[in-house]
Amino acid sequence: MSESTNPSNPSPSRSGGSSDRMDRRSFLRKSTVAASGLAALAASLSPLRKLEDYGSLEEFMQKHYKELSAEEMDQVLKRIEREVERQYDVRPHVQDLKPMDGVEFVYALNLSHCIGCRKCVYACMAENNQSRDPEIQYIRVLEMPNGTTDLEQGDHRYDPETVPRKGHYYMPIQCQQCENPPCVKACPCRATWQEADGITVIDYDWCIGCRYCEAACPYWARRFNFKEPHLPKDQVNPNMHYLGNRPRKKGVVEKCHFCIQRTRAGKYPACVEVCPTGVRKFGNILDPESEVSYILRNKRVFVLKEAVGTMPRFFYYFD
């Protein structure tokens, strides 16, 4: 097509008769059609000019998390640090802390004393660099009327002057870190998997954004970046993990990862720390002395949607 649009194409036989003229006319017509076709295609593609960040070739060609050697991982972490600094003017510390031996994390939540203040929701956002616009939250708190555990009767948008409201209890729900996670099964490219310490993680650079995991999750724990995430520079948490709270890009899925950047360094998740009533408990189930081990042994514990067979590592209890 590019050849035929060349206007300086000299005609070899100028003395030609009518058939030659016909050829030239049809040639001209064809080039006009081809040129206007290309112009129309270019015009239809014009929104692409607004594309600001295409991501680097390095990022595009990057291997799956599990296939990166130690040196390659080092390069990747440096690249991410550079990119975060360029975008947010904050020098982050991006780590790839591995699971600790003999550790399997478990969460327990005491429904008897949760007051539904949603402090966990916002502490989670401050810790995990979620987009503020559009706002992404990992924890959803339901206001449940006493007498039922049917989630459909819960209120997601409760907004009274003070909590707790009489006749209600509160049910915070986040990723249940299932032992048999349907999301991991669903992912067509192994971008999400379960780590040795029980945390189901996502490689944000490997996710293709098909959202099949989102459809598969029975707990509505996963969030998709439908738009470019916006995070104010002064709200960035610079302590980051590759599989955790490093800033995400549009078009990938994210979710609660038990604050992997904190818990693998021996700290509690942000939601546990902030809870004013102390109903959130976190620890190592393989350690018989741990608080969670005690709770699982001695309290009336249940899991959400047990019938689905997901075997959550997130336990609820009353006392």
Binding site: F60, H64, P188, C189, W206, C207, G251, V252
Partner: peptide, 18 residues
């Protein structure tokens, strides 16, 4: 797809085929 350019990740051999 949210990341159409990365769709090769779901192909066998070059990607990580689940």
């Amino acid at each position: 797809l949210g990341q159409p350019l990365q769709s090769w990740h779901m192909l066998p051999i070059v990607g990580k085929f689940n």
